[in-house]
Structure formats: C-alpha cells, structure tokens
C-alpha cells in the first residue's frame, strides 16, 4: 500500500513532466527534462515559507492537507476496487480545494482563479454521466465488479465509447496547459496557485502527481480492465501522450468559450445517457 502510494506520487509527477516535454517537442522547443516536476517539489520544499499576512491561516494551510488527503483516499479507493461514486465525489471535492487555494490568500489573482473554477463547474457533469452509463451497462458501481464484468464481456471502451470520451474530456479539463485550464492561466499569474509558495506549493504538486496517476489509472481500469502493472503504466503513458497532443495543438479557450464548450459536451453526454437508458 505504501509502495503504491509512493509509486503513484513519483510516476504521476513523471507523467506531468513527460506531458510538458511532449508539448514542448510538438511546439519545437527543447522543453524541460522529464523529471522537472520532481525537481520542482524538491525546489519548493527547500524555500523559506510562511503564511501571508492577509491570508486566512487555517484555511490556507488546511486546503493543502485536504488536497493530499483526498487524492490519497482516491488512490486507495482505486486500489481496493471501491465505488466509482466515491471517486466521483473526490473529483468534485477537488473543486472545493481549488476554491480554498484561490480564496484563502486574499490575493486578487487567486480569487479570480477561484471564481473561474466555480464557473467551470460544468466540467464535472460529464464524469457523472460517464459513471451512470457505466452503471447502466454493468449494473454496479464497484470498480472490482466492473473489472470482473469486463473480464467476461470485453472492455467498456468498445461497449460504451462515448462514456470513455466523456471521461477522457474530464481528465483533459484537469491537465495543465490544456484548452480548459483557465483556472491557472497566465493572465492570472498562476490562478488559484498564485499565493501558495514554498512548502505549500510543494504539497500541492504532490497532490497533482497523485491526481494525475489516479485519474489515468481509473480510466484504464474502468474502460480497459485489469492489466499487469507494466502494461497499466505503459497504457497510462500512452493516454497521457495523446492528452499532450491535444493540449499542445489547442489554444487555451477564453473563460466564456471554455464554459460553453463544457456545457455542450455535458448536453451531448446527457442525451447519450438517456439513449442508453431507453435502449437497455
């Protein structure tokens, strides 16, 4: 269990580093080394750290702890083959964490990052549709039972491709440098992360590593099925590289367009869920 946790943090960070490298190579830049995100954590964790004078201290520190705690919980749910509902809940709670990061410091940049995170709340609904379509197909929400179902009936990727696309878009909307990453766009300095420096930022990066690993792992597990570890890690890498291509080739949308596109996707997914529900 501890080994999985450490693997998740390090491999998740490595994936984020590869993400940056692939984007850079597509854009004909050399790009940072792939272990850059691990170096980032080390760098931030050695910096002098305090709580800003205007910040709400308990919340400022508390959200960092909560951020790591919820994604640790998410990883354990995936390992234990627990309920997809809990995973969905944790994904939504990450939004609260973003609000907490953005609002707790009193900085205007952080605040606008937080407000943008509120308006892009529509990005969670495709995940819910994806979860409910999976429930309609398999009759269960427990990950281990879904994996067993796939062992008998073939991967859900082929049975319910739109649900896979919905979850793919959900992961895309959480990737840095993507079309939907308006919460950390550069006109807001770093958006909701702006005021969390030093060890707080290092803690946030640990959470980001865990989050990337959990989301990609859950995607492979739910839509392809149980695999040996090396193949699982390889597939996660392949999905990540495809996400990097999308991120490298699409500009960041304006907040209004980002929300509109997410709403359209949500609408399409709801129609698909209704069609599946009527057919089954």
């Amino acid at each position: 269990m501890l080994a999985e946790l450490l693997l998740a943090v390090v491999y998740g960070l490595l994936l984020l580093g590869i993400h940056r490298k692939v984007i850079a190579r597509i854009q004909k830049r050399p790009g940072p080394p792939i272990w850059q995100e691990v170096l980032h954590i080390l760098k931030f964790s050695f910096k002098t750290t305090w709580v800003p004078a205007t910040a709400s201290g308990v919340l400022f520190v508390g959200v960092v702890i909560i951020a790591i705690a919820i994604w640790t919980a998410a990883l354990l749910v995936v390992i234990a083959g627990g309920s997809l509902m809990i995973l969905f809940g944790i994904y939504m709670l990450h939004k609260i964490v973003e609000h907490g990061f953005g609002l707790s410091s009193g900085s205007p940049y952080g605040k606008f990052g937080g407000v943008r995170s509120v308006i892009s709340a529509a990005s969670e609904i495709p995940l819910f549709v994806s979860v409910s379509v999976i429930a309609l197909f398999t009759g269960t929400l427990m990950i281990d039972e879904i994996v067993a179902f796939e062992g008998a009936n073939g991967p859900l990727l082929l049975l319910a491709p739109p649900a896979a696309i919905a979850m793919y878009l959900v992961i895309l909307s959480k990737m840095p440098f993507g079309p939907f990453s308006i919460v950390e766009s550069k006109e807001l300095v770093s958006g909701y992360k702006t005021e969390h420096f030093g060890i707080w930022r290092a803690g946030l990066e640990v959470c980001n590593g865990l989050k990337t690993f959990v989301l990609l792992n859950a995607f492979v597990l739910v839509f392809i099925g149980a695999l040996p570890l090396w193949l699982l890690l390889l597939l996660m890498l392949a999905i990540l590289v495809s996400l990097s291509f999308v991120c490298a080739l699409t500009p960041m949308l304006s907040p209004f367009d980002s929300v509109t596109v997410q709403m359209i996707i949500t609408g399409l997914m709801l129609v698909y869920a209704i069609v599946v529900w009527v057919m089954i």
Partner: peptide
C-alpha cells in the same frame, strides 16, 4: 500521509 509530507518539507 499529508501530515508527513508537509512536516517533512
């Protein structure tokens, strides 16, 4: 785990 990460840093 979060307590460990932050206190270590």
């Amino acid at each position: 785990f979060p307590a460990f990460v932050l206190s270590l840093f």
